[in-house]
Design a protein around this nucleic acid. Structure first.
Lengths: 249, 249
DNA sequence: TAAAACTATCACGTAAGGTGAGAGTCAAGC
DNA sequence: GCTTGACTCTCACCTTACGTGATAGTTTTA
């Protein structure tokens, strides 16, 4: 049975020693054993408990509440993990909204346009609670305006989505026409850059992820098919060009 | 020029009135105007400033530092937004790792297996600072292990993307098998909810956007083709079910 | 066996607001 | 014009989750 000192555990879990002291003090995480010297030693079950604590903390639960939850005899680790999973995914979606808000703001900034609706500036900041949302809008503006607003937004939203799709098509098309060039040709790389930016608006791909992706374009049938449908050989070509791009930047 | 009272701005930006008072007090966000009554009124430029503040706050910047940044004459809104973008994506990736850690833990829990390496319990908890990461790892374990780590991460990224794709496939498949039911059947709606969450992880579709999307599934050939390829008629079925979903929630 | 490296317990400090209390202000309806 | 309910103001003390020493004992390493 392995034993960890404060320092060792702190490093392992990326928390400070003070944090462990604190958790001991408030009875949230007590060491499995205390030598007569007073030193704290943590064992396996403490490691699991700490993981749980950190998951809850990540979700902004107050420590006192975490303690109550973990000490409740009805506590079940698997249920808790599934709960965390749900909430973390929720947070991911919130971040996605936030990124979208950011891109919209950037877009308006470039066009030097005035906002029609300042509301847009703040979408995604509210910490996840989500419940009564639609009803609030209805209350605010009345049902009639709601419908009108809805249909107007409707066509705008459709246009946005279609535009996004079109942008993707354009990038693919442009690249397919450059397949006679070398992968490291500036004209190719320019479009790869666009491709990279385009993909990051959907998926958080930094260069390492993007690089992993490049491999998928040739390894995975689904990816390969999608691109080769535009023009046979595009998948392999793009994959190579992406790798070059990653190395260059 | 529109003017917002504390309450109005607080609601708009999902912060508390107290927070606005506090920001005024520390000189982070001063109202554009103060009536003789002492009431605070905020104008357009304050709205933008608040957005910036919230982005920085989301990234755990201390308020004092935010103030210094925003008041620096070299401050540029576009540069700042691009910085936020980078960091938010970094956080998304951290959450991704955290979810992976969670799934691994769940997996081990079910198999009732012992962990070979407790280190795994805590991947993704460390808040992003990241700069000197590679160098740190290299220092610690030597260059050889670094490469290994890289390829492992690589495969994790690939696995994540493939898992995402698989999730999409599963949802489509499940729905295609429920086409004999009514669109408002709970079993159908359950999967529509998953579909909605799934799409949101790529593109933040609130209910109005999702509704617009529903129409695209029948109006736009590209969308239609994608779904009808799974099973003819799925596009229309899903479209209807999505509309029901939007009205129900 | 001494130095270097940890660890322990106070104890006070801090950031970002929460939570009233007491008093002035504004908009609407009568 | 007056009342009433909903806002708003300032002060001031409270809270959470640790950070940051100070001082003193313990373990490990040379």
């Amino acid at each position: 049975m392995e034993q960890y000192t404060v320092n060792q555990l702190a490093k392992l879990a990326s928390v400070s020693v003070r944090t462990l002291h604190h958790y001991d003090q408030i009875g949230l995480l007590k060491p499995g054993e205390r030598k007569r010297s007073g030193y704290r030693y943590y064992g396996e079950s403490e490691l699991y408990r700490l993981q749980q604590i950190l998951f809850y903390r990540e979700l902004d639960f107050p420590l006192e509440e975490i303690r109550l939850l973990l000490d409740d005899p009805r506590f079940n680790r698997e249920t808790a993990l599934l709960f965390h999973r749900e909430k973390l995914q929720q947070r991911q979606r919130r971040l996605q909204v936030l990124l979208h808000t950011l891109d919209e703001t950037l877009h308006q900034l470039k066009k030097e346009e005035k906002m029609s609706n300042y509301d847009m500036l703040y979408k995604g900041f509210r910490k996840e609670k989500v419940q009564a949302l639609e009803s609030e809008v209805a209350e605010k503006y009345g049902a009639a305006t709601l419908d009108e607003t809805k249909t107007r937004l409707n066509s705008l939203d459709k246009a946005t989505v279609l535009a996004l799709q079109k942008e993707g098509d354009e990038i693919n098309l442009a690249l397919s026409k450059l397949m006679h060039l070398q992968a490291d040709d500036p004209r190719v790389q320019e479009w790869v850059k666009k491709h990279h930016q385009y993909t990051t608006s959907f998926y958080p791909a930094d260069l390492t992820v993007y690089r992993a992706w490049a491999q998928l374009y040739v390894e995975d049938e689904r990816f390969k098919a999608t691109y080769d449908k535009v023009k046979p050989g595009l998948a392999a070509f793009l994959s190579k060009a992406m790798l070059v791009y990653c190395l260059r930047v």
